[in-house]
Nucleic acid binder design. Structure first.
Lengths: 248, 248
DNA sequence: CCAAAAGTGTTGCAATTACACCCATGC
DNA sequence: GCATGGGTGTAATTGCAACACTTTTGG
């Protein structure tokens, strides 16, 4: 645990170096075990979960702020990030942010902006699950993956953010980029199908799915098969290199 | 023209009553003479045009701020408004906002936030052209309609905002709401078609268009025709009452 | 009576959906 | 050998795009 003074210094520094009343929150999607996953953080000393987020530097663009948050939480540099909505109702934090600082033992000034109204720009991120090394930070105990459909309740309006992000992700699914950034380097066709099914929330026809994916001309069939599983070994595929912008 | 002190008071008040570094900008679409129109404001004493915009009150939601801006510029209360993107790069104002205040004869403090970085939430508005009574304000000489395709260059990144808003409008065109809010109470089918053509930027087939519109089941054919024009008089239609949320 | 716009219905294509057969693998 | 999943092709449907003729009106 950090010392009181350390946390209070952190708080004060925050108010100077960031744009007031503004934050970014990231809905980080991953795919693992045939299942969409969300990266969530837990408030230190409390049983409250929230989306990874952060404030916006005074000399930092919104996109850069979101990238910085993602880099700190996942270790990845070039993440596929997309702004989807800005949340700016009056009651969206409903005083619960006070609890976060109380939990840390910080007596923040009454008029400090992080305790009052904050407008948050929502981003969703698509990452290769297997490359992510989740990291907690000053204000969080834990940073871990949860299944989208079986996650804890989230703080503030973060559940609404997730729904909004998921809707935006569905829209973008016709572009190969979304799949390319969520899947590992190589994968089988049924695995790719399960990703699409998880995002759309409905089953798809195996044959029609494969046909459409191949017609897009962005997949390359590798001369290997995924062996070891029960039943017939499926082919491995990968996206053409220009789509595989590695998230280092 | 306002006196110097009056404008300076306005400036100072602004910094207190609004959330710093934040604004809303509105892309206001209207439809008239078979043509999409934009509502633009001109900076006082300068030949610079911009989107209607404003700052966000400390106790005001983003949506409310956009509604307030629209109410002041158009006189309309219940406008169809939709957030489409938030613009937050570092260079989006490029010092030009200084010129606005210089033009008004205001010597604003160097560290005043309206002279520096501002993050802007973009909204688009769909209004019934015939109901709008454009009004200028403290910082603008003029507030008038311009044809979308033949408009002056806009300040800041406002041209990019217009393109973004137009893309969002195109997306929403399959819902009858967009058409219902842009058209007057009653209209002919060819008029409605010209609206769709203006938004999509391409000609549509008369017969297929009419078929699709009627299949949606939201139009009501009135027992009148538009007379007076040359050629055969077209029928008048209106949207069913639940879609005609009057913008008073 | 002619030009130009409006009202209506049919036909054909293309994209999507539904569906059936064979193959490989583990138990 | 049988249950389960994977690989491939074809038939049916449906939604959309293309298109022709008649009617009305002003000049």
């Amino acid at each position: 645990m950090l010392s009181k003074t350390c946390v209070e210094t952190f708080f004060t520094k925050q108010m100077q170096t960031y744009l007031p009343h503004l934050s970014v929150d990231c809905v980080v999607f991953g795919f693992h075990d045939s299942d969409l996953k969300l990266l969530l953080t837990k408030w230190k000393h409390m049983n409250i979960w929230a989306l990874p987020g952060g404030y916006v530097g005074r000399r930092e663009s919104l996109d850069d702020a979101a990238h910085r948050v993602l880099r700190h939480r996942t270790g990845l540099r070039h993440v596929h990030l997309r702004q989807f909505h800005t949340f700016g109702t009056l009651n969206r934090r409903e005083g619960s942010s006070r609890k976060l600082w109380d939990g840390l033992g910080v007596r923040a000034p009454r008029d400090a902006w992080p305790l009052h109204r904050v407008v948050s720009i929502g981003y969703y991120a698509l990452v290769d699950f297997s490359r992510v090394r989740p990291k907690a930070d000053y204000v969080s105990d834990a940073c871990t993956w949860y299944p989208l459909r079986d996650r804890p309740m989230l703080a503030f309006d973060h559940d609404a953010m997730v729904e909004h992000a998921l809707a935006a992700l569905r829209e973008s699914l016709d572009s190969p980029t979304a799949s390319a950034t969520l899947m590992p380097e190589s994968f089988t066709m049924p695995e790719l199908q399960r990703l699409h099914e998880a995002i759309l929330g409905k089953p798809l026809d195996r044959r029609n799915f494969q046909k459409r994916m191949l017609e897009r001309g962005v997949l390359e069939r590798l001369p290997y098969r995924r062996t070891g599983g029960a039943h017939r070994a499926p082919f491995l595929y990968r996206f053409h290199s220009r789509l595989r912008r590695a998230g280092l």
